[in-house]
Design a protein around this nucleic acid. Sequence first.
RNA 1: GGCCCUAUCGACUAAGGGUUAGGUCGCAACCCUCUCAAGGUUGAAAUACGAGUUCGAAUCUCGUUGGGGCUACCA
Length: 520
Amino acid sequence: MTEKKRRVRFAPSPTGPLHMGGVRTALYNYLYAKQVGGDFILRIEDTDSNRFVPGAEEYIIEALRWCGILPDEGVDAEGHVVETPSEKHPHAPYRQSQRRHIYRKYAEELVSKGFAYYAFDSSEELAALRAAAEAEKRTFTYNHETRLSLKNSLTLSPEEVVRRLVETNDWTIRFKINPERLVEMDDLIRGHITVNACTLDDKVLWKKADELPTYHLANIVDDHLMEVTDVIRGEEWLPSLPLHYLLYEAFGWQDTRPNFAHLSLLLKPDGKGKLSKRDGDKMGFPVFPLRWVSAEGEVSRGYREDGYYPEAFVNLLAMLGWNPGTEQELFTLPELVEAFSLERVVKSGARFNFDKAKWFNQEYLRRRDRAELIAEFRALNAEHLEGFNDEYIGAVLDLMKERAHFAHELWGLTAFFFEPPKTYDEASVAKFWKEEVPAILPEVSRFLKGLKPFDKEHIDELLHDLITFRGWSMGKVMNTLRLFLVGESKGPGVSDIMQIIGRDETGFRIDRAIRILNAK
RNA sequence: GGCCCUAUCGACUAAGGGUUAGGUCGCAACCCUCUCAAGGUUGAAAUACGAGUUCGAAUCUCGUUGGGGCUACCA
């Protein structure tokens, strides 16, 4: 068996930051490529200079790197798109704007074979036709029905065509759809699809005005030249698939045509439409992997900046539209590579759910390496942690980390371990600091100060014995103690807190609270 | 409007002709308990609708309806 190495590409357009749907497409491409032992290629489809957004390409690469989905080809080790061919990058350049010189010949080839024609209608003329049609509640389409009444090499004299080709500068090359054709296609996710070519329009393949191809031509030519074997892309491309099939045929490349798989789209949480840039800030969650600041200064939040671990982000994205067929939900990237299959990708659109996303991160936070979490906690709260060693911080985090979804929530949950409460929750004070309690606490404090060894087990024993012996209320005493140690009436077990902060600090906090509350 | 895709709990999904339609998130209750979490147990919660095929349909077919995409000299 000498099966050829599979080549799978992700081909985003740098028209803005890559959103999470795009990352998911990249991820599925990556998983598929790696599973079959193939190469994952990144190609930048920047054929529309009008929509070019500075920084978008860098953003795409950084987002992929953050997620750990690294291209084998197209991008070098430093994260730059490769511009010159080499052994590792034989098909460079990988940016279509740098490949512009190669496309025209393919477009001309189609004209000479009779599969395409020159069209001289200006965009203004076409816009006017569309507007006129719309006024009559019709839709204007440049297709087999209208092309013979328009200005193109099918209707103009050869001399006129040549004259316009050399003298004018805004003509295009259009694909000539054969309306008789029935296009039979196969999709790895959706199965067999049949489309009647008479419903297709004559798409522009090449534009003289910018000396550039459109997506359709560039995409097919590059996939062919780069020997791409599998195309996994968003569902928005499904309507173009017949055109792409026809293009492969017209070039005579049908035998090496790649396999196609069209992924369903990520939908808004409320199910109305596909997830878009605006939704995040409107609905309170990020739609982008990384923070993005537009040229106008508009800021969109990112999963990274919101405190998600890339592993969690990748995991949740993988499970949005794919499942392993088992009940396992937590996967590392290598595990995903192992388990992934296009057959198990679901066909219908997936709505994004913020709660589930947070749950994924919580699971990863729990599983976080202890030393890494300590370092992370230190980095996040350096100003509060001088004088506390890793052993102390580790003990605090062991006790508290399962309460958080994100590392940045940890400080709010643990601050009382590092500094005495600044205030005492008033409602809790009113609830507990009354009746016999003020008289009891000084005695509890005295006993605690004499306790040795001062650990959880002995503290529990002492407190329990003292409270039962005196006939006090367990709840009142314990909750008051917690109020004094934490500042409010929630948190971990009283003895857990005492063991960590130690005997001296415990005594200090209790006495201080008694003093303050008695003075009121 | 036309073309294409799609349809199981609120959300993500499993079940590929025979299951009490399963799991996860979320929600609720109970247990644990010094509070709050976590954890444990339990519960509410779905095959869009209508025909057909079949002994038998969530599953196959057709239609309807809903949702989504595309319909640019954008990708």
